[in-house]
Write a protein that binds this DNA or RNA. Structure first.
Lengths: 133, 133
DNA sequence: CTCCGTGCAAATACTTTGCAAAGCG
DNA sequence: CGCTTTGCAAAGTATTTGCACGGAG
């Protein structure tokens, strides 16, 4: 039983904001970005719409980094890299997981896998540069 | 400049609690488990010690699932499966990432990778059973 | 005696929610 | 009009922190 969804300019703007960047934004980031064009936008609305999008599978969550949930408008499977220094979340080209191996494991263990995600942690190029002291 | 660390029975108990299970506990879980044996244990202490352990690399974090941070006493690289229904975090045998491929990507992109993690999402065997309606 | 570790409670930080008002169809 | 979406502010939840006291060395 799906709920009917009316058109909303703000909702569209929120989705567009997430899709138009590769910075893996947080709710706060989206809010700050849109505040200029939509002065009466409320942070609650951003949160509400982002979770709705996530639930519908329109966008994905990269997970919670530094206490904040980061979203990703790119739903095609790809890899993420998290810098332990600055907390940046970067896209990494390439799929590191063997699909057949996952499927085999799933049937072995008796559960159903709907998605897989690879996360690399380390220090990004930016922070490596600054670190030379 | 490392800080000196005295012996503490409670700290040891907290570490032992995380290591003695494969349920990937949260701070609250550890607290509940130890409360019986250490009636005046405080939740703040559990949080404090868990983050200290994590920082020292003695234990790892599985990430935030359902709003709570889950820890893992097993620091050897392995894979995690998260059930979208019940939120359980399970260990999965097998390493799904190609080390050489990660290393190549790292040098290509100019950052340093210190760890990699694979996360599978789906529905666990338990929940699949219950779902037959 | 001098620090370290802890209990306790207050403070944070992010996210969710209730409700009345405004908007879409 | 009926149902959806929003603003606003209050409530929630997980985690962190300040401080005085008990404990280890």
């Amino acid at each position: 039983m799906e709920k009917k969804q009316n058109y909303s300019k703000k909702r569209e703007a929120i989705l567009e904001a997430v899709r138009s960047t590769d910075t893996h934004p947080t709710a706060e980031w989206v809010y700050q970005k849109l505040k200029a064009g939509y002065p009466d936008l409320s942070l609650g609305t951003v949160y509400r719409n982002l979770s709705a999008f996530k639930e519908q599978g329109v966008i994905m969550s990269v997970g919670v980094v530094g206490g904040r949930e980061h979203y990703d408008g790119n739903t095609s499977p790809h890899t993420h890299f998290i810098c332990s220094r600055c907390g940046a979340v970067l896209d990494v080209p390439g799929n590191f997981v063997s699909k057949t191996q996952v499927e085999k494991t799933a049937s072995d263990c008796g559960f159903k896998v709907t998605s897989s995600e690879v996360m690399l942690r380390g220090i990004c190029a930016e922070c490596l540069k600054k670190e030379k002291y």
